[in-house]
Structure formats: C-alpha cells, structure tokens
Design a binder for these strands. Structure first.
Lengths: 207, 207
DNA sequence: CCGCAGACGATAGTTCGCTATCACCTTGGA
DNA sequence: TCCAAGGTGATAGCGAACTATCGTCTGCGG
C-alpha cells in the first residue's frame, strides 16, 4: 500500500502508479477474474513488486476504487458552494456512486464489502458534508435529528445496493428519492413508478 | 445445489444435509477461512461429493444462509395475522436479518453479495408481505406509492448494511427507524441518538 | 431379488493467491 | 561522487479452490 512512513522513492511511486493503472484496466475487463499475475505483467513490474505494495487482491481493488472515487466524487463534494441546495447535491453523489458500482462490476467483486469501502471514503469528506447538512437543517429541508456523520453511511448503503442491483435509472431514482424523503419526511415527494419483476428459486427438499 | 430435477436418492439427501450442517459449523468458526476440504471431512463425505452438490464455495454459503433464513425469518413472515401492525413486523424482520449478518461473519464473507442474496430470499415470501403492505396502505401507515415488491429490496439493503457495520443496537435502531419513516413520512418519529465516530485513513501521495 | 442409474470416495492435476528468498540495481542524502 | 537504504525482478514453494477421471457401491423401480 501507500501509507507513507516517509517519502516514496520515485521508482516505487512509478511502480504503484503503473500497477494501479493496469489493475483498473484488468478489473474492468471481463468479470473481474483477471489474475494479479496479469496485472503485474501489464504494469511492467514483477509480481513481487505488486505484492510488496498491495498485500492482497482486495487491498489493490480498494486502492483502485479510491482512485476512481477521488476522480469522480471528490470534485463534486469539493465544489459545493453555499448557494447549492442539499437535495440535488446528495442525489448527484449517490447517483454517481451507484453508476460507478454498476459500471465497475469486476472491480466491485474484488473489493469485498462495497458499502464499507464507500463509507470510509465518504467519511474523509466530512468537512464538505457537514456544512451542507447544517444549512439544510436550518432551512428545514433535512430533519434535525440527522447527524452529518449519518450521511456517509446512508449514501454508501443506498449506492452500493443500487449499483449491484443492476437497476435501470428509473428504479434507482425511485430508491434515491425514497432516501431523500427519509431525510426530510416533511417534504416527501411522490416516488417514480416501479418496473416489472423477476422469478423465484428452488430450495433443497426431498419427496 | 439441490434443484430437484426429480426426487433425491436418500444417500444424496443425507450427504447434502450433513454437508450443510458441517458447513454451518465451519463457517461459524473463526473468520470464515475454513477450507472446503475440512467441511467435507467434518461432514464425513468425500470432497468430490461436496463439489458435486455445491459447485463452489459461494453456492454452499448461500445454501447455508438459506437454511438459516428458513429457520429464523420465514416463521415470522408465516405467522403474520391480520391484526399485526406492519411497522413492528417489518422492524422485527430487518432487525433479525441484521442480527444474523452480524453473528455469521464467516458465512457472510463467503456469500458474496449479501444484499442480493437476502433480497432473493425475501422475494419468495411476497405472498406474506403483500397483504401487510396493502393493509398498512389502507390504514395510511405506509405511503401509497410503495409497492410490496420494494420491501424485499429495502429490508435487504438496510439489514445487510447494518449487519456488516457491526453497529451497536442503538445505531441499528436508528437506521431502521429512519427506513420506516421513509415508508411513512407522514408519521415520522424522532430518531434514536447517535454514537461516537472512528478515525480516517491515508491515500497514496508523494512528497 | 435383481440390475442399473446414479451416487460415492480416492486421487491426480491445474491454477491462482500469497509468502519467502536473494542477488542486483536505483535513488537520494551526505 | 559515493554508498547504503531500500526498491526490483526472478524464482521456488505452499495451500486451497476447483476439475476430471475412475472403479466401486447402493438405493430403488421393475
């Protein structure tokens, strides 16, 4: 991993970067069954180097996820201004998180617990989230008994579940809307309508 | 697995049962790293027999989960009478599901996507869930734009997230309460108060 | 009660995640 | 400029998930 006990030597930094790039490509290809050996080869490093920086597959996957998060989600949180209404911002974040989960199937299957990983990443942005929650509460658009620390959990929970559900956009909107209504029961809005259904399965029986 | 194309021979049925029992014990022991080899040994069957019935670890884990679900959750759903208020029933189900997830760590880590697995199991009980939702909607305690088919997704999502969160009972109550408020914004109740926080983590940087 | 479909255990083999070792090369501070 | 701290690739090895094969045994329908 890249917890800098001190500064990284530039060769190590370069290895890590190339491994992450290769891992992102390989995880995105196929169903996520790509071997670590292949990632090392595509990165142009030895397998030992890969393991030196990322002790196991899950750690590597989470590091890739962190990168994607930093690119796609952080900027949204960073650019919140005082004028923004909280509801669209939260909805945007949740929607993009579920986009990522839906798009990066292979990656997600190597991450392990997606909800947990997402929660941790969102918690680093507490400074960005806290003020918008507070403003919304003063404006009465988020119930007062919600704590800013709840938001990462709630967003991660919904986004992870929706991402893996491979739900269409309408269904996702539906559940996101429900979440936001939960945050603000006083101003609940009608839910988008539902889609069809799927079949059921079998259990072990004898007769 | 045990999709009966026809009837199971009793020796096969016995093997499956013993494998499931052993798997449950082994998954419950330690962190869930127990080998399939050990499960086969404890079940008193050959490893080939295990693989014959359960093509991989995840399938086996889900079969064990299905059993636990059948024992602990199905009865609750089956015993719903017309007099029961929906809120406590849904809360009870969600709470017990998250109990299971919290208790069966090792099992859960082999299941893969817990939300998905739980949703599928709950969907088999649609017949039990539909009427209580309808009654509640007539009574005005569940918003009319919720569909009974939403309930499995919502319960599974919350229960899976809470189970893995290793949250204390208060925190879990808090989020469950929030879910129920989402179902019925008109009668939202105050949330239980929050607990402390945890630290943050490091990202890969160079300097 | 007989025959056979089909379930069984043993065993061998492949792949992949992960650990360990080691001689060699690069970086960056002194 | 030098040199040691530490990063690097190659390689060997282990354990576990899974696949495949095969000769044997047994439940059960006829």
């Amino acid at each position: 991993m890249a917890s800098q006990g001190h500064t990284l030597r530039i060769d190590a930094f370069s290895s890590i970067t190339r491994i992450l790039d290769a891992a992102r490509r390989v995880f995105a290809t196929g169903d996520g069954a790509g071997t670590l050996d292949r990632i090392a080869r595509e990165a142009g490093v030895g397998i030992a180097t890969l393991y030196r920086h990322f002790p196991n597959r899950q750690t590597l996957a989470r590091a890739v996820y962190e990168r994607i998060f930093t690119e796609e989600i952080q900027p949204i949180l960073a650019q919140i201004s005082d004028g923004d209404a909280p509801r669209p911002v939260l909805l945007d974040v949740a929607e993009r998180l579920s986009d990522i989960a839906q798009r990066e199937r292979g990656l997600v299957s190597s991450i392990g617990n997606l909800t947990e990983a997402t929660t941790e990443l969102l918690q680093r942005s507490t400074e960005a989230i806290t003020p918008i929650v507070q403003r919304a509460q003063q404006a009465g658009t988020i119930r007062p008994d919600i704590d800013a620390d709840d938001i990462p959990h709630l967003l991660a929970m919904v986004a992870a579940a929706l991402g893996v559900l491979d739900a269409d956009r309408t269904t996702r909107r539906r559940y996101l809307s429900l979440l936001l209504d939960a945050l603000n029961p006083a101003q609940a809005t009608p839910l988008p309508t539902r889609q069809p259904r799927r079949p059921a399965k079998r259990g072990p029986t004898r007769t």
